[in-house]
Amino acid sequence: MVLTRASQRMIGRRLLQFIPVVFAVAFITFMLLNLAPGDPAELLAGEFPTEERIQEIREYYGFDRPVIVQFVDWFSSAMTGDLSNSLLSREPVFDIIASRFPYTLMMVTYAMIIAIAIGAPLGIAAAARPGSWVDSIATGISSFGVAVPYFWVGMVLVAVFALKYPIFPATGSVPFSEDPIGAIHAATLPAIALSMSGIAEITRQLRAAMIEVLSSPYVRTLRAKGLSRQAVLFRHGLRNVGITVITVITLVFNRKIGATVVLETVFAVPGVGSTLVHSAVNKDYVVVQGVILVIALVVVTVNLLADVLYAIIDPRVEAEA
């Protein structure tokens, strides 16, 4: 399975779409933040600011310039890796994100592994025998996962596994680079909470996709050739639902990134999600802007990766491209 020239072209086109998407996200958030109430200059000026002091700060940070000019200025330095400095801590935004991002990545990856490890086998088992008890369990779990809010699951988990039976820590985290096992231990509860809707989504989508594959005419051909049910399911079924697997994993990943905003706050994890909430509350728009840009980059990269995987898994992609 190598990439043909057609799929390389397809990937090239996706790469070109990358830039406008990131630009658009940056532009829209910049504009929205500008529309939001509250003047950062007033905030920076301290408790009893004078009008002159505020004006000075505005001029110093360039807040008095037209919004478009501010945006172009910010975006062009962002392209070079300079996301300017936090209004509150004066730290470079890039450094803040770089120190926080590993915690988020760790938590999301952990949650994804749980979601795939439980959701995928469950979905496939359910599809192999629709209407069986396995199918009922799978359907039940996926309904539960969709219906229950993850922060509530998080709080229940904390109440049971941190407070009543102190197996895992309630809050906080350990850097993976220093103590991998400790990091995993600390991230377990938030990762489980985060994985709930993912398990549900992966189970549901994979079940539906696999049922569709198993009822397609070529499966009848495979059975007519004398292939066993297992060979049909695992060899042919899996490769055929590959596209769906990638799509749903990408989708779930994107949602998880979004969910970290709340969950990191609940578990006091010092990741980009809690940083975003903290900065937004304190009107540190520069940090908010930087975090959103980085999240957009991550999401777009993951989608690009998914496109590359499509082209590798499905030989028909090049034909449609």
């Binding site: 070529y218 009848r220 059975r223 007519a224 050739k225 590959g242 499905d314 030989p315 028909r316």
Partner: peptide, 21 residues
């Protein structure tokens, strides 16, 4: 028996073969 002693071919050549193999 299937595919070895009794084989079957179907109407739709477009959909009767696995598209990703």
């Amino acid at each position: 028996l299937r595919g070895r002693h009794i084989s079957m071919i179907f109407q739709e050549p477009m959909t009767a073969l696995d598209p990703v193999f």
